[in-house]
Design a protein around this nucleic acid. Structure first.
Lengths: 221, 221
DNA sequence: TCACCAACTTAACAAAAATTTAATATCCAA
DNA sequence: TTGGATATTAAATTTTTGTTAAGTTGGTGA
């Protein structure tokens, strides 16, 4: 779990960080709009806690940006202001919590949002043709035979199977398997795809290339 | 949108129903646990508003049942009670609203929950006639068949579809696909438009020229 | 401690594909 | 008819990907 906390008051940032950190979650703090934008670019977060009243006044704009990046947002403010609340929720915020809040409630709300986002996905096995992946144990079976793959390769395959027969953009693969979409990893991605191909081709699957866009998993007749 | 309201106070049930009904949503009211179970069995609901303090005292159990059926739940109560709140959220509730609540806020929270549930599924596809583009994976489908196009061509097509049947100026296309509108790229733009035309004409689309201004995508009867 | 191994990354170059450039043909309005 | 713009085509160039091999890292057991 990686949480982005956007907060300009140091005290609040520290106490929230402690709270989340004690939960075993990774926390990154951004002090304002620009700061947050920068961090989103380089890292992948599961959720964002956003203080609406930033010094720079760009709280609402940030909601829209996060929404577009598919990062869920919980808005934190000191003000109980219903029109503002409604506006934020409409803009794409997932929840709205007024300070001071009970730490347990905040945790519970974060978990509720995360559960909702990730919940529907964690269904048993991923399947495509005669391929089965248990994403929890990261084990793969093709034609009833279990096939071993190193971690990175399995992770790539998971995303490819989840979107079998449709293009999976590089960013999706990179952010899932590497946690960030930096140019540096592309090189590595290619060699992993190459190794994965070698294995899959023995079972008449293939990974097709879409230059500049991504890869697609397909079954070859 | 079908909403299940579980509420034993008639007044509240009526006012909530009116509120949601005025929104154009279908509303069904259950008066207690048994009643609710019955309705879930026979109908499919998009969301449930649950008064925790039912006469029969089975509010929390109902959360678990709804959770299992993958029906999102917003808990409504008259009591601001944090431990209870936390417990409900842990049990699977998606939000927790204390009465009396602002009608607009309730609506906004319902929409936020729904958005979160359905959000990842409803890929925002661009459409024009029987053409579909997923701008994220840059993949194109025409007449249910997937059609491959190189990156620049897809990017041009995205802008053309976004403004289908109206003129898209050169500058728009250039700045989207090339990031700058320099004269140098015009030559290249023409070549790509030519290639794009060749493909689209097979599916009875065409790109019309407006010399000195731009291009327009159109469906040819 | 050290050698070894597997997983992963990096680097170098070949191959393929996409994009641009250039040369020529066509269209249209003044 | 003629000049300016666009269309078409082919060739040149650049970018991106595939492949191979060598280098790094972190863990394991002698």
């Amino acid at each position: 779990m990686k949480v982005l906390v956007v907060e300009d008051e140091i005290d609040m940032a520290v106490s929230v960080s402690r709270l989340l950190g004690s939960r075993g979650w990774q926390v990154a703090v951004a002090r304002g709009f620009e700061d947050a934008i920068q961090m989103i670019k380089n890292e992948v977060f599961d959720i964002c806690l956003l203080d609406l009243y930033l010094g720079d006044g760009y709280g609402e704009e940030l909601i829209e940006v996060l929404e577009q990046k598919h990062i869920p947002v919980i808005v934190l403010t000191v003000v109980e202001d219903t029109p503002k609340k409604v506006k934020c929720l409409r803009l794409g915020a997932d929840d709205y919590v007024v300070k001071p809040f009970d730490p347990e409630e905040l945790i519970a709300r974060i978990e509720a949002v995360i559960r909702r986002i990730k919940g529907p996905k964690k269904e048993d096995l991923l399947r495509y043709k005669d391929m089965e992946i248990d994403p929890f144990s990261m084990s793969l079976r093709i034609q009833k035979k279990s096939v071993y793959l190193p971690r990175k390769q399995i992770m790539l395959l998971i995303k490819l199977v989840e979107n079998a027969e449709s293009i999976v953009p590089y960013e999706t693969l990179l952010s899932y398997a590497w946690g960030s979409h930096e140019e540096a990893c592309m090189e590595s991605l290619r060699t992993h795809v190459h190794k994965l191909r070698k294995v899959l081709r023995e079972f008449s699957f293939d990974i097709l290339s879409y230059p500049g866009i991504g890869y697609m998993l397909k079954y070859i007749a």
